[in-house]
Design a protein around this nucleic acid. Structure first.
Lengths: 332, 332
DNA sequence: TGGTCAGAGTAAACCGGTTTGACAGCAGAG
DNA sequence: CTCTGCTGTCAAACCGGTTTACTCTGACCA
């Protein structure tokens, strides 16, 4: 005999499947005596309801999904992701909801993954790394799957949104640099397709005015290094570089140093994300902490709320903070 | 009408459910003409088979599980985890197998999670953070669930094992320190319940001989700091400290510096795990890289192999490498 | 004394797939 | 000309739960 089924429990307790089901769900009154017998039998047999069977019958997977389009390699060096997942799980775990993770490399694979989720693998999804006019939003809307968008979506959507104010800390940072005498401030952004990259770059431009010192990177250490090299070769090189994440900032910082430049005296450097080691670098790396843990919690809460039938709500979290450290200390 | 079912596709194509199923699975011969009609109908309706239904019928979830007993907070600052997941996913993604992640805080929650997986949420599990005589091994054996153990399990088990040689790089490191004149070398370990912590500590003891300078930490920055403080207060304080992970090492390093000690001149420091930023610290942190990505790949491959009915196999990967950097440079 | 109603439980339908057994039609062998 | 075998399809059973419709008691009320 394989794993025990509800039928085994039922006959062990001398009742029918329906009674066992009701005894556990409480959706129908069951006498105390019977309930006790059922529970004892279930315990005896070590019965746990089959989740596919339950999912099929209730149309609830008791799971939420996240589809990652990122290259697994990039995932690995990302500081945002584990903290975000941890936040999500801290909400999911007590309710015994599982998290289904799927990585897709191609657009069609990604689409299949979302479809698979929509038809039963999970009850809803959290959408990360929003693009402008992201195609996933209409897709999910068409599929009728509850979803929570992380970041600002500018189109129409009936989904909950969890936003943060990324512009404010960038403004604050640039104002700080300007106030300390920097006149040529560069920015190494993330891919402009991402809404969050664009918002940061936009905030930079609002203060700096033109795109002369704006370079588009891709969040990898390699691009941080290469674009730093490019910027430092300019005839009138920047005295400060603001990167869209810490990984690029650190790669840039190391490279500048390898040229003999001193940080912050010859070049001020700032990142974004506040990797947990950034405070321990030497000099400490100025960065913007974004509390991905909290964002994970809130996103998960909103999603569960929507799945339960609540009306989608959008929030803007106040959780971005500029962390000034020595890499942008005053110039002597 | 809700999402299309196989029945909708069948009637659209003018055949029965069985024919649709066979047309896709190829388990029975179907004429080219019919097959084309079925596929067209499915495409037209945007049909994707319901995974709970399929899972129920085939007893295959097409997913593998990982249960994390770690506190979500610790997860967030862990460098091993995202890279490991990335490795796992790089094997899973092309086969369209999903990864089900469950975090449990209590022992009973953890047990429920494993039971839930065993009865259908997933087809197998990867077991992380092995303890000595880990209770999960007999549990999973009893449940009959395929599993892959990450690390050495000393008891009997019929599971595949993916091991690494953690002792060799520790030996190499300590020999290096001894060769450079260090006589008092301390070790801040992880919790001794973990096999990997124990292996590292054991390797340390094999070279150092006694436990006087061995302290048990818990992988958090806080414990790294506190135990460093304790060690540095000793009358005959150590000249080198080897930590069981980078997070503790960095916290210890910062603390030592805050006391005015110079690294490596007054105190040599080494970590374990080789966080991607460790090479960029200043001084660069000596550490041991363990290639979690590769371990994830291999673990996933073994698990899929076992799920498919293969006989479990154990491997020892040669993927730990000592990375000597300035934090343990020669004393002047 | 008959009617209503709540409580406890049963039997069967259903969720959406897969798989098995049966069968019709047709080709080739004996 | 029948028998066998193969191809292509259908109908029904099955996976393991949940849910609905229904039955049977016994208590309460008028």
């Amino acid at each position: 005999m394989g794993r025990p089924t509800i039928g085994d429990v039922a006959s062990a307790a001398g009742v029918t499947k329906a009674t066992v089901s009701h005894a556990f769900s409480g959706k129908r009154p069951i006498s105390e005596a019977t309930k006790a017998r059922v529970i004892a039998a279930a315990e005896e047999l070590n019965w746990v309801p089959s989740s596919p069977a339950r999912a099929l019958a209730t149309r609830r997977a008791n799971a939420i999904g996240i589809v990652l389009a990122r290259d697994p390699e990039i995932l690995a060096s990302d500081t945002f992701f584990p903290a975000f997942i941890a936040g999500v799980e801290s909400v999911l775990a007590p309710r015994e909801v599982a998290l289904v993770l799927q990585v897709a490399r191609t657009r069609s694979g990604e689409e299949r993954a979302y479809r698979a989720i929509a038809q039963g693998r999970a009850d809803g999804v959290i959408v990360l790394d929003l693009h402008q006019d992201d195609w996933r939003v209409p897709l999910l809307q068409g599929l009728g799957t509850p979803a929570v968008l992380l970041g600002a979506y500018d189109g129409q959507s009936s989904f909950s949104c969890v936003r943060t104010d990324d512009a404010a800390p960038v403004h604050e940072l640039i104002d700080h640099l300007l106030a300390h005498g920097h006149t040529r401030i560069a920015h190494v952004s993330g891919p402009m397709g991402y809404v969050h990259s664009r918002v940061r770059a936009q905030a930079y431009l609002e203060r700096v005015g033109d795109e002369e010192l704006l370079r588009q990177g891709d969040f990898t250490a390699r691009s941080g290094r290469d674009l730093t090299a490019e910027l430092l070769q300019l005839p009138d090189r920047p005295s400060a570089i603001v990167y869209a994440n810490d990984t690029m900032a650190i790669a840039g910082l190391s490279y500048a140093r390898s040229l003999g430049l001193r940080v912050p005296d010859d070049l001020a450097v700032a990142g974004f994300d506040d990797d947990h080691l950034s405070a321990h670098l030497s000099p400490g790396l100025t960065s913007v902490s974004t509390d991905p843990h909290r964002r994970g919690e809130v996103a998960a809460e909103h999603l569960l709320h929507d799945i339960a039938g609540g009306t989608p709500r959008s929030v803007t979290l106040d959780c971005t903070r500029l962390r000034l450290r020595d890499s942008t200390a005053s110039r002597r």
